[in-house]
Amino acid sequence: MTAPRTPVVFIHGLWLHASSWGPWLSLFADAGYDPIAPGWPHEPDTVAQARALPDAVADTSIDDATDHFAAIISGLDSPPVIIGHSFGGLIAEKLLGQGHGVAAVAIDPAQIKGVLPLPLAQLRAGLPGLGNPANLHRSVSLTKAEFRFGFGNALSDDESDALYERWTIPSPARPLFQAAAANFVMHSQAKVDTANATRGPLLLISGTADHTVPDVVTRSTLKQYRDSAAVTELKQFEGRGHSLTVDSGWKTVADAVLDWLKTNGV
């Protein structure tokens, strides 16, 4: 009798479509997992549809997205591994802290409540959303130049532009405002239960050249877990930017995640 395959739920961040996880889905299926990559609440099924209907995702909050993925997870046959990138990484951390998964991987995760560093590069990368207070309840798109700074700064211009054309979609700006104000809001939606000692293992991943979530931010995130006895580790990828899940080096990151899951018996 074939053993059941462990589910894996992939959660993308802002400005990338769920279909950008396609190569990861194939790799993880070949490795014996049962992977899915659902979109955020109300996200259209294709990149083209998402670009044509930018307001479909407007005003989506961190908790809206977290509850959406929690509901998807509750419908699975067994608790999954949760893998998220950027704001998807923050959501993966929240879900793991709430007990929804057996393990989680947060790749270049957006800053959670308690993280203090705010590098200039991160401020600039967030300006497309944060630069106009009226964007709070809107969806926002990146220009090719903004994508190159926030995602593709470690790539050639040609590769960055190709990724922009293939995967970018309008995204809600509200999570950016929530994360930026997290340390000033008592019940911030960017808060994660970092003290949970009964949760599964967590791997944080950072690219040392990331502008959107600089390495210092991810290292500060790791420190937030110092009061938990649960496994929490950090892996850094030298010279990689925020595009590390979708650029030509994606498989190096994915293979490292698979190795870590195997080491932790997941």
Rank of each mutant, 00 (worst) to 15 (best):
A48W: 03
T46R: 02
G150K: 01
K251S: 14
L234C: 07
P35A: 09
F149S: 09
V231N: 06
A65G: 13
W250E: 08
L16M: 13
T232F: 05
E165D: 14
D67Q: 11
A209M: 10
L222I: 01
G239V: 10
N264H: 05
A92E: 00
G200L: 02
G32N: 12
A37G: 04
Y33E: 04
H100E: 11
D259M: 10
W24S: 07
T263N: 14
A195V: 15
T6K: 00
P35E: 05
A229K: 15
E238V: 15
S220N: 09
T263D: 12
Y164V: 09
H42Y: 12
E238P: 03
L95I: 07
S20W: 00
L176I: 10
D210R: 07
W15H: 09
W260D: 01
T2C: 00
G241C: 13
A190N: 05
T194V: 13
S220T: 11
V257L: 00
N135Y: 06
S243I: 07
P38S: 04
T66C: 12
D64I: 02
F151I: 00
A180E: 14
V105E: 02
L163D: 01
I72Q: 04
A179T: 09
V8R: 01
N183L: 05
D63H: 05
T46V: 09
A256N: 02
W260V: 03
H17D: 09
A162M: 10
G239N: 11
A254H: 03
D215E: 15
A179K: 00
G207V: 05
A190V: 10
S74M: 14
F147L: 05
T60A: 04
I72H: 01
K144D: 09
L136R: 12
G99D: 12
P133E: 13
D55P: 08
T263E: 12
I169V: 15
P41W: 07
L120F: 11
T198Q: 11
G249D: 03
G152S: 13
A18H: 00
R138F: 08
G129V: 03
L203Q: 01
S206M: 13
F10P: 03
D45W: 08
P4W: 09
P38T: 14
G200Y: 00
D157R: 03
D30S: 15
G126P: 04
A110P: 02
A121H: 04
P117L: 15
G84R: 06
A103T: 06
L90W: 10
R148S: 11
D227T: 13
T232D: 00
P201C: 06
D63F: 09
V253N: 02
K262L: 07
P117A: 10
V8Y: 01
A195T: 14
H85G: 01
G207R: 05
G126A: 03
A256T: 05
S228P: 11
F151K: 02
W250L: 03
D63L: 06
E146M: 14
H85N: 09
S61I: 08
S141N: 04
H85C: 02
L16F: 15
V216R: 04
A65T: 11
V185Y: 14
F177G: 02
L76Y: 07
P170K: 06
H137E: 11
A106E: 00
V192S: 08
R174P: 08
P128H: 14
L127K: 15
